Amino acid sequence: MKKVLIIETNVTRYQGTTEPTGLWLGEAAEFVAEMQKVEIEVDFVSPKGGFVPLDPRSMKYTDESILEIYEDPDFIHRGLTNTLRPDQVNPTDYAAIYYTGGHGVMWDFPKDLTIQNLATAIYDNGGYLVSVCHGVAGLLNIKDKSGNYLIEGKNITGFTTAEEILAGKKTVVPFLNQVEVEKRGGHFKKKRFYHEYAIKDGRILTGQNPFSVRAVAKLLIDELI
């Protein structure tokens, strides 16, 4: 069975501020936990490779399952301190690419052509594009062979404007997910804030918020097994 490539951010702070951000821990850890249950291997990559910062707020939302992954030496090494660079990745090795969230991704995911090229190659090879929460930012600028946005006409979800307001981040984020998805012709779907919600449209699977990680992981597992 092919592996799943997990994408994480290198951004350490909300740009223009001294407030730290980074990867939302549960969005990597819970996904890894679900993959481990069915023995699907994962690799970790970030735009720059190497160190991945954790959003300190995410540490308030842990449970035993998340902490077990967080304390795993393999996750610490490959998922947090020594992630691969895009040029070290062969896209043909992967059946899916999964974009984690945390506000940091809003600054490095949308503009990173190397990650977009990996995603395009995996998708064109019959693979799946998967995201949760702010990870939807990684899907925004991927285009098909005709130069059209891949999410055009697709049902997509991600962290909502209401959730940004409740998180107190609406005024510091560089864009709003719903606005950007709709600019590219996507159909943004959502449920009540901070409730589990994951949807599938073809080979694009998306989850709304941090409480949707396991739901979107299970959608992918259903496709791969």
Rank of each mutant, 00 (worst) to 15 (best):
L67K: 15
F44L: 07
A137F: 07
E223P: 00
K191E: 15
I6A: 13
T92C: 03
D72Y: 00
L205R: 02
L205Q: 02
I156C: 09
V32I: 15
M106C: 04
G16Q: 11
K200C: 03
V45M: 09
I199T: 10
V179D: 13
F31C: 11
G101V: 08
T120R: 15
R203G: 03
T83G: 11
L224A: 04
G126P: 05
A215P: 03
P210T: 05
T62L: 13
I6Y: 08
K37E: 13
R184M: 05
E71K: 15
V11R: 06
G147H: 14
R78N: 09
G22N: 09
F175T: 01
Q36E: 15
G104W: 04
Y14R: 05
P73Q: 11
E164P: 01
F75R: 01
D93T: 07
V181C: 07
G22P: 02
V173C: 06
L113E: 14
E182I: 10
T157H: 11
H134Y: 12
E180V: 01
V179A: 13
I69L: 04
P20W: 00
C133N: 07
G102H: 14
L139A: 09
E223I: 04
H103A: 14
E34G: 08
Y70W: 13
L129D: 00
A28Y: 12
Y99S: 10
P174I: 05
Y149H: 11
A119Q: 12
H187R: 15
G185E: 05
L219M: 12
N82P: 01
Y194N: 14
G126W: 08
Y194F: 15
D93W: 03
I156V: 10
K189A: 14
F31P: 03
L150Q: 10
H103C: 07
E19R: 15
I142Y: 03
K48T: 08
G22D: 04
A167G: 11
V136R: 01
N10P: 08
L67V: 11
V136L: 10
G16N: 09
V52Y: 01
E196A: 14
E27K: 11
